[in-house]
Design a protein around this nucleic acid. Structure first.
Lengths: 176, 176
DNA sequence: TATTGTTATACTCTATAACTATA
DNA sequence: TATAGTTATAGAGTATAACAATA
């Protein structure tokens, strides 16, 4: 599976089976000379990757006023929910390698969203917490994502399906 | 959302609501000092990314005997289903930029899985098709993925849920 | 003038080794 | 000796500009 930004694939319908009325395509009907995706759309990995790219793209657009990447957002979320943790703990929970976490934090700290402070217990550790501005920015980001990004996803999929989707993705991430 | 390789998150249950019997955790119960993922697991982007990484990881493991990446697999699939197409058509369908497609094809061609040949209609174009070996390798890859990778996913999620998952991912990729 | 394949290049992500300061 | 944060570095993946051949 390749999967980058653009492109398109097979028609999709969320509801029950539907007898097609011979001449009434709900979608623009692909040009006869279009490249056939074929069985590729039947592999979860392919659709998963394409959906993930689209979701991240939309996420970035929604929080554009705050200039937060998905990675930065996740760090702010985790630091807020776990004040007093050190870099290793936050990074590893997010699956970020410690060396790669340094520049990420440098950026957040330089924008006054997050603070590093030496632990008095273990002076090797840097304790993380959000600044006042960090909490404010995170709060605005959450609202933007909830009201624009996630709300439109619920609209597209339906509330029940959206929740089931989240459940299955979590199951794959944790149990597969 | 950060999201790389390792880590874990909140408990998940696919079925209906379930009254917890006060003392009978189905999962090992997280250590009290574990970092709390919190609301982060409620955002689709986060779970989507983690699931995608896990799926690709497993995919790569399953086709390890054939040494195919998801991207290479998708190219072989598309070329087989669309013989006679040129590089631009295959690449753009997969969302791969033309410059980045060159090295990918170089590798497949050097392994005798795929062939470039100049089109007689338009001598700028390189027509793509699979070699005999390419078809054989792809066939083996499909079998490995179907019988190991996808089969285990169906087992984990249930057939019906798995199909619904695929449907929703396609919907997000195409309609969101 | 436009398009195909290509090269060169740059930027982001991810990954590993090794250093320093602490423990 | 082991661990936390860091630096350096290398490799993928992705993005843009520009060139030669062809249309």
């Amino acid at each position: 599976m390749a999967v980058s930004r653009t492109a398109s694939a097979g028609t999709v319908k969320t509801g029950k089976r539907q007898v097609r009325p011979a001449r009434a395509p709900s979608r623009p009907a692909p040009p006869a000379d279009a490249v056939r995706i074929g069985d590729l759309s039947g592999f979860l990995g392919y659709s998963l990757k394409r959906a993930q790219l689209r979701i991240f793209e939309d996420f970035i657009g929604c929080v554009a006023p705050l200039q937060l990447t998905p990675a930065q957002f996740s760090v702010l979320m985790l630091v807020e929910a776990n004040p007093g943790r050190n870099q290793t703990e936050i990074a590893s929970t997010l699956g970020i390698l410690r060396p790669n976490f340094v520049a990420l934090l440098d950026e957040l700290e330089s924008r006054d969203l997050c603070l590093r402070s030496r632990s008095s217990n273990d002076r090797r550790s840097h304790i993380l917490r959000l600044t006042e501005k960090g909490r404010a920015v995170l709060s605005r980001a959450r609202k933007l994502i909830e009201t624009r990004h996630e709300a439109r996803l619920r609209e597209l999929l339906g509330n029940e399906n959206r929740d089931l989707l989240l459940l299955m993705l979590g199951k794959i991430a944790q149990e597969f």
